[in-house]
């Protein structure tokens, strides 16, 4: 099993998809943090509490979750696209074993993204507040925000892989991920908050303290995230074991 996981790990990092997605995510996070600070200092002569600013700058790195999800999704769907999934199944000792190895490898991939984002997020208050009158103030809330950001990045990678296994087609899978992330969760939260807050994206927002008043409490959000991952795993496993391969 160790060799199989190692092989799946290598497949994820093969090609250029991962660094393209990672670079895009870093750019988005930097722009979001810079935009937030600009707005913060422009809107009021006396900016908010520096503790709040520090936590918000850290929170901005949650967008790396999308990159981790895309990288995991591309790694899975690429195999369906080029037919390598059949060889993976043939050489891995069974579909169930391969699925387990893939999920372990994408969890590791998510952890790498989470660690990278964690380092950058932790450094970002000092970088963005450099040269300003305010000094970053790191609090327990900031620590929990950082841990929440890192957790949702790992969950995002697993969710991306599960969607890839379910949909199989790369473009369709990425579109589904982007639409569900940008439109469905947020839209449902506005129209039907009781349902919207149960979507995986809004449960993630709860975990990294997204700040919306309709969101779930963190413990309940963790339960909802676990339920989504469990449901996704069961659905992906069922389809992967039963459906013909390309």
């Amino acid at each position: 099993m160790r060799d199989l996981v190692a092989a799946e790990w290598r497949k994820i990092w093969a090609g250029r998809a991962w660094w393209g997605a990672a670079a895009a995510a870093v750019l988005m996070c930097v722009m979001a943090d810079a935009g937030f600070l600009q707005q913060e200092f422009a809107s009021a002569p006396e900016p908010s509490d520096t503790r709040e600013i520090t936590s918000t700058l850290v929170q901005g790195w949650f967008m790396v979750e999308l990159a981790a999800a895309v990288v995991a999704m591309v790694a899975v769907t690429r195999e369906f696209g080029n037919g390598a999934i059949s060889r993976s199944v043939l050489l891995s000792g069974g579909r169930g074993r391969l699925l387990a190895a893939k999920l372990i490898a994408v969890t590791g991939c998510g952890a790498v993204f989470a660690l990278g984002a964690g380092v950058l997020a932790a450094a970002s208050p000092w970088v963005f507040l450099a040269g300003r009158a305010q000094e970053p103030e790191w609090t327990a809330t900031t620590t929990w925000t950082l841990l929440g950001v890192m957790l949702v990045i790992v969950v995002g990678a697993v969710w991306g892989a599960l969607l890839g296994l379910l949909i199989r087609h790369q473009v369709a899978a990425i579109l589904t991920l982007l639409i569900s992330t940008w439109l469905v969760g947020e839209g449902l939260l506005r129209l039907l908050p009781e349902i919207g807050r149960l979507t995986i994206d809004e449960a993630m927002a709860s975990v990294y303290r997204g700040g919306h008043e309709d969101l779930l409490s963190i413990p309940w959000a963790l339960v909802v995230l676990a339920a989504w991952i469990l449901a996704g795993t069961i659905a992906a496993r069922t389809l992967f074991l039963r459906r013909d391969l390309p």
Binding site: L4, R10, K11, A14, G15, G83, R87, G93
Partner: peptide, 30 residues
């Protein structure tokens, strides 16, 4: 099974890992 049966079938492609050697190393690792 994977050690007893070698397969090359239409539609089963490489991993997309770049070079032939890298692709084969991934399968060898598997």
């Amino acid at each position: 099974a994977a050690h007893r049966v070698g397969v090359s079938i239409d539609g089963i492609g490489p991993t997309g890992a770049g070079s032939a050697q890298t692709d084969l190393r991934i399968w060898a690792k598997t």
